[in-house]
Amino acid sequence: MADERKKTYYVSMATGEISQLKTASSWDFEIQATDREIAELREYFDQNYSTDWQAFWRAHVPYVQYHYDRENDAYDRTLTKIYEQIYRLGNEEAKAHIRSLGILPAENETNE
């Protein structure tokens, strides 16, 4: 059974890296999460990595506009899930930064 104690992790949005080492590389957010929550966050990053490649190949079909592109829609939805998860698990600095981006619906910010 997975360990349900929360541990500190550092998340990089650019690389999708999740590390317990604060000095391992540059990071954007500090979060407290269980093993299960980290597995879920990792799955979201993996989904976006896969969707990003699909969008890359689709980009070579110039007649499909961005707002009609399923891959971009899927990427955007998953990115929102990533930010929601980080907001829920993040420290006050992470929450303040995500609020400042204005990318989450207001009801998500109040369900802390």
Rank of each mutant, 00 (worst) to 15 (best):
W27K: 02
S19L: 09
E109R: 05
Y66P: 13
A39L: 11
Q54L: 12
E30R: 15
T23Y: 10
A14T: 12
W27R: 00
G90V: 02
L41G: 06
T23L: 10
R88V: 04
I103V: 15
D69H: 09
Q32R: 13
Y66T: 05
E84R: 10
E37H: 04
H67K: 13
Q65W: 04
V64A: 00
I86W: 01
R70V: 02
S12V: 04
T34A: 07
R88T: 11
D76V: 01
I98V: 09
L104V: 09
E17I: 13
Y63N: 07
Y10F: 15
S100T: 03
D35N: 11
K81W: 06
T23K: 10
G102K: 03
D52I: 00
G102V: 02
D3P: 07
A59W: 03
Q20E: 15
D3K: 12
R70W: 04
N48F: 01
Y9F: 15
G102M: 04
D52M: 07
R58Q: 15
E93R: 13
M1D: 08
Y10E: 09
D69Q: 08
Q32M: 12
L21S: 14
Y66D: 14
D52S: 15
D3Y: 03
N72D: 04
S25M: 09
Y83I: 02
W57I: 13
Y83N: 03
K6N: 07
I38K: 00
I38Q: 00
P62S: 07
S26M: 09
D3G: 05
Q47G: 01
A2I: 08
N91D: 15
E84P: 00
I98R: 00
T23H: 11
L89W: 07
E37Y: 06
Y9L: 10
E93Y: 06
D28C: 01
I18C: 11
F45V: 07
Q32L: 13
L21M: 10
E92A: 09
D76A: 05
N108E: 12
T51D: 04
D73G: 01
T8V: 15
Q85R: 14
Y9I: 08
Y66A: 13
N48H: 05
Y63W: 12
Y9V: 11
Y9H: 14
W57K: 13
Y44C: 04
S100P: 02
Y49V: 06
S26H: 09
R5N: 14
G102W: 01
T110R: 13
I18Q: 06
A55T: 01
L104T: 11
Y87G: 05
A2N: 14
R99Y: 03
A96E: 14
E109K: 09
Q32P: 00
K7S: 12
W53C: 03
Q54A: 11
S50I: 05
L89Y: 05
S50T: 12
N108Y: 09
A55K: 03
N111F: 10
I98A: 03
Y68V: 02
Y83F: 15
R88N: 07
E71G: 00
M1R: 05
A96R: 12
N72Y: 13
E37S: 10
W57T: 09
N108Q: 10
M1A: 13
R99L: 08
N108R: 14
D69W: 08
D73K: 03
K95A: 05
A2V: 06
Y10T: 09
F56G: 03
R77C: 02
Q85Y: 01
